[in-house]
Design a protein around this nucleic acid. Structure first.
Lengths: 354, 354
DNA sequence: ATGAAAGCGCTAACAA
DNA sequence: TTGTTAGCGCTTTCAT
């Protein structure tokens, strides 16, 4: 056995190896490796000898073994619908930074709004013993997460949340943001308004945005006709938007304004509006939920409801870390609710009719 | 000791637990858990009893322990300069999909082009025993990766590669793409051309794009004057572009065209060109390396060199998997080299001068 | 067809 | 100030 190792393999050097070659115990080495040497009153000389040997043998601690032993992987999961969506990639970036600053890695998963896939991903991450989870869920209710909470997995829901929920969560004022958009549109004198959402509508953000938007219209005595109340399944966004816009155009019955419920929808709508050479905002005004950098310098620039991505990420990570570190979260801190802003640009401002 | 566990903790159930409660051995349970029951000729009834118990006790295999024992984490690392850059978030998404299909998770790290940070990240991932690594490096030469190769860590370099390199890698024709851009610009009759790059220029993609672009200009007897050969450090892209564009504008000495070396640079340039109300393409034509969805429907739409993101990701993952699975990679497969396309849109087409 | 036992690399009681 | 030892949960020879 020994010979075999000896002969061929460049076996990784372990704690035991360096302990043996130094004639000390593994404990000792472990202590100095983890910087607990002084705290445990270990002879500075000995410590130096250990460090020397570590360098000499090129020892690399096996974090996996350590994690196994300590029940901690220093890895968190981030689950979103699509990491290539700018909103989520910015969140990912922010969370990654916070994680890095605290010695954590983050593994990302995209669900494509597929609930079964999402559950599988969560289960896999749990099996892999991640220390915590930040998730923008596609599920329909809080049941699954209440179970997660009971199971003691630190996690926080972001973006999409549920009202009756134990889990810490951070969300934005989707309802209020949508109301801002509606009021703004109304102030431009438009009455014929279309709305483009993704289905399933059970997703809290979408639901709230729809309700907020319609609430203002209703107050003004306006209803969105069914054919202008569009819902596109995640995989069919392109087709649905394209088809509907074309239909409007051909029939000559176009809305005066469109409210799109996320940045992806906004971009896609913009794309097909352009293809049809429909003038924005003259023929159709456009405003979307969720701002994206380029909206600011497109021609026309695109109005949007801006979400505080940095604050979302920061709050989420903080909430997660508290759970991981078993620090208490006061009830009123458990749900972080952030305001949004409306950024009015060219796309939604109707030219003055003199 | 036992009492303590017994009393309070809802200890996770382990293989041993279900083995004990069934009066069988851990081996047996392990075998059926891993679906090797039949192969080892284990009594179907026994197998069913085990499965039953697993359900009853809600047993969840500890993938961490398994990984520790087997020396495999089923996790790969993806290191890029910035995951929120659309180019990389698309790559991430693609790689994540491939990984998921093969039972792997991916942990992402953004380096901000910081070499020291990158090295720390790699080291951390190695300590965490990831099975492999896909990286768009910011390093200056292949030395580090040659060492990685020697150390036996499966990895593949993407996007940015080195010529003298052992590591499998996948890159695109940066040189050729830049030449296309240059030829196109020349065909529009422009002679006064500026180039905006990120520094450090040692990054292979940037270097190649610059060389490719200049080679065509040189052939046409054109040189880019130093003040139009702009290099922006990663953290100062905004400022540098803004300042330079302003300078051109104020002095009234503007180039007729600008070539930007990545999508971020293109967007930022576009942004400040607009702020200065400089007309594109009439006053300044613009073409960038790396295409982004919205370039297609901006007004004007933006010309760009398009990279085959899907193929990059696919090739990279395949190359990585082969290494992880210890399958041989033929020498000629070790470097995947992909073509790029030029997409000519409005921003780079000069109006006819009659 | 099933079981015993060793061991992956590390940490933490407990001893000395 | 340092060492002994017992696991963490799993897989895998090698026995039976």
């Amino acid at each position: 056995m020994h010979q075999v190792l000896y002969k061929t393999m460049t076996k990784k050097v372990s704690l035991a190896d360096i302990a043996k070659s130094l004639g000390v115990s593994k404990t000792l080495v472990s202590l100095v490796v983890n910087g607990k040497g002084d705290a445990h009153g270990i002879n500075p000389d000995t410590q130096e000898r250990v460090r020397e040997k570590i360098r000499e043998l090129n020892y690399e601690p096996n974090a996996l073994a350590r994690g196994f032993r300590m029940g901690k992987t220093h890895t968190i999961g981030l689950i979103v619908s699509d990491i290539s969506n700018r909103f989520f990639s910015r969140i990912a970036r922010n969370i990654e930074d916070h994680a890095w600053n605290h010695g954590y890695n983050v593994v990302i998963c995209s669900t494509d709004e597929n609930i079964e896939k999402e559950k599988k991903q969560i289960q896999l991450l749990r099996d892999r013993k991640i220390d915590g989870l930040i998730i923008s869920t596609s599920q329909e209710d809080a049941a699954y997460f209440n179970k997660l909470a009971d199971a003691g997995l630190p996690h926080v829901l972001i973006d999409r949340v549920f009202s009756d929920m134990k889990s810490p969560n951070v969300s934005v004022d989707n309802f209020g943001g949508a109301r801002m958009a509606a009021r703004h549109l109304l102030s431009q004198g438009v009455k014929k308004i279309a709305l483009i959402a993704i289905s399933p509508v059970h997703i809290s953000t979408i639901d709230e945005r729809i309700r907020g938007f319609e609430s203002v219209l209703n107050e003004a005595g306006i209803t969105i006709p069914p054919e202008w109340n569009i819902q596109a399944p995640f995989e069919e966004i392109e087709e649905v938007i394209k088809d509907n816009l074309q239909k409007f155009y051909q029939r000559g019955e176009m809305p005066e304004a469109i409210f799109t419920l996320n940045n992806n929808l906004t971009s896609t709508t913009l794309k097909y509006l352009r293809k049809l050479s429909i003038r924005i905002p003259e023929e159709i005004a456009l405003i979307g939920f969720d701002d994206v950098l380029y909206f600011g310098f497109t021609r026309p620039s695109i109005s949007a409801i801006e979400q505080p991505v940095d604050r979302i990420s920061e709050a989420a990570f903080e909430l997660l870390l508290k759970q991981i570190d078993k620090k208490s979260i006061k009830p009123h801190e458990r749900s972080v609710f952030l305001p949004v802003d409306i950024i009015i640009r060219e796309s939604s401002v109707k030219p003055l009719r003199l």
